[in-house]
């Protein structure tokens, strides 16, 4: 064996053993009929898939950062599993975005080679959590909103989005229950846990305004019967939030503020996203197409 082959022997070296890119199997939508519905603008549909995919990708990354830092082993497992579900949803959505835009990029190129201004996630998912109470408050807001969104997406005119929605509903139902139970446990716990849970709710809820603002891309796709208007999700969100806050003996902050400035859907992000992308993309960018 020559020295050049020494590293080769360390891996089961098949054609996509590109672990810098991390995905393993080639196409999570292999065999799925990926035609674009009639009357739907390809650019809009690709942008919409990016929005929902980037939400899941960045939230997943923030959750992964909690692994090894959670209070108990069971919560390590829960957070890792929730992050994995969201990563799976991100893969499906980014693959769909890549197919629809048809510009020679794949899910890896979209995840690893875009700059912050090209990401379309809501800013809520970028936030670094000050403590575990912030994490569960943020996850409750995110999962409650995303569950309502995915559920409505099952009726979307794009069969691929409808299928991703139906699958995701089963998963995010568990995510929301997990977050809600922790909010109740901490809010209805000791004086200290109550105070920290209240502070977390006060800090996180005001960030939710962006979740319910209809982006022009969404408005056009709603007219074509292919997307969910996030403004329609607010009543369900408010109901679930109120139910959890009451069970947790917390007082709700003044409610979700209206938000109509440019936001993450327009590529306007918080400074935190650059840090996330540096960690997420660093290896893939430093060794483009690297094979181990």
């Amino acid at each position: 064996m020559s020295f050049d082959e020494a590293y080769e022997a360390l891996t089961d070296h098949d054609d996509d053993a590109r672990w810098a890119y991390g995905t393993g199997f080639a196409d999570p939508l292999a065999g799925v009929d990926t035609a674009v519905p009639a009357g739907v603008d390809r650019g809009d549909l690709a942008a919409y898939c990016l929005m929902l995919g980037d939400d899941a990708l960045i939230m997943s990354h923030r959750l992964q950062q909690w692994v090894t830092r959670a209070p108990e082993l069971e919560d390590e497992l829960a957070i890792a599993n929730i992050a994995l579900d969201l990563l799976g949803q991100a893969r499906l959505l980014l693959t769909r975005a890549a197919e629809v835009e048809d510009a020679g990029r794949d899910e890896d190129a979209l995840a690893y080679l875009r700059d912050a201004a090209d990401f379309r996630n809501v800013r809520l998912v970028e936030r670094e959590d000050a403590d575990f109470a912030h994490l569960v408050a943020r996850l409750l807001v995110f999962a409650t909103w995303r569950l309502a969104l995915l559920d409505a997406l099952t009726a979307a005119g794009d069969p691929v989005l409808a299928a991703i929605g139906a699958k995701g509903v089963k998963e995010v139902t568990y995510h929301r229950d997990y977050a809600a139970r922790w909010v109740v446990r901490l809010g209805d716990g000791t004086e200290l846990s109550h105070a920290r849970m209240q502070a977390a709710a006060d800090a996180v809820l005001p960030l939710a305004g962006e979740l319910f603002r209809t982006h022009p891309t969404e408005a056009r796709l709603v007219a074509a019967g292919t997307a969910v208007d996030p403004a329609t999700l607010r009543a369900e969100f408010d109901g679930v939030w109120a139910q959890v806050i009451a069970a947790a003996n917390l007082r709700s902050p003044s409610g979700v503020p209206d938000d109509d400035g440019p936001g993450g859907r327009d590529g306007v992000h918080t400074p935190a996203l650059a840090g996330i992308l540096a960690e997420l993309q660093g290896l893939a960018r430093s060794v483009p197409g690297g094979v181990w």
């Binding site: 939508l29 065999g31 799925v32 499906l92 409808a162 299928a163 139906a166 699958k167 089963k170």
Partner: peptide, 10 residues
Amino acid sequence: EVRTVLSPAW
């Protein structure tokens, strides 16, 4: 050839 089908969900 191994294909994936998402719908109906498992």
